[in-house]
């Protein structure tokens, strides 16, 4: 198992669970939650290295959750999941501190590349061993 711990935040339960399973098959520890509030409470107990965060969710929006994560620990890297017509929100997320954004449906190879890059960046910031 690699060292990377990922938290997937998406209100689409099946999507989050299947993506987590695919990451686990690649030795990445993946946990899922299905709303913004659970995401913010989860990071208080188990700190992930990278959060994969859906932009559109019914309770807190992805941008609100991003703000909460960065307030708690600015070194946690966040990759936003956006729709094709919402690239401006992805860019706004990056302006607020997200590592990057990726469009849904995702390209898994691209996501893996971004997860690894985000993890390296977090390590370089000195919070991880």
């Amino acid at each position: 198992m690699s060292e990377i711990k990922v938290l997937i935040v998406d209100d689409e339960v099946e999507f989050a669970a299947t993506l987590a399973e695919r990451l686990e098959l690649r030795d990445i520890a993946a946990e899922t939650v299905n709303n913004g509030k659970d995401a913010l409470s989860t990071i208080l107990v188990r700190t992930p290295d990278v959060v994969i965060l859906d932009l559109k969710m019914p309770d807190l929006s992805g941008l609100e959750v991003l703000n909460g994560i960065k307030e708690h620990d600015p070194t946690i890297e966040v990759i936003m999941l956006t729709g094709h017509g919402s690239t401006s929100s992805g860019i706004e997320g990056m302006e607020r501190g997200a590592f990057d954004y990726i469009m849904k449906p995702i390209d898994l190879d691209l996501l893996l590349e971004k997860i690894n890059q985000a993890y390296e960046q977090r390590k370089n910031l000195g919070k991880q061993p």
Binding site: E14, F15, L25, G83
Partner: peptide
């Protein structure tokens, strides 16, 4: 179309999982 893409994302990941296996 946003909802449609969510359905497609699930189909794609489920299909990808079978491919992985």
């Amino acid at each position: 179309t946003h909802d449609l893409k969510n359905h497609l994302a699930i189909i794609k990941e489920s299909n990808g999982l079978i491919t992985d296996l």
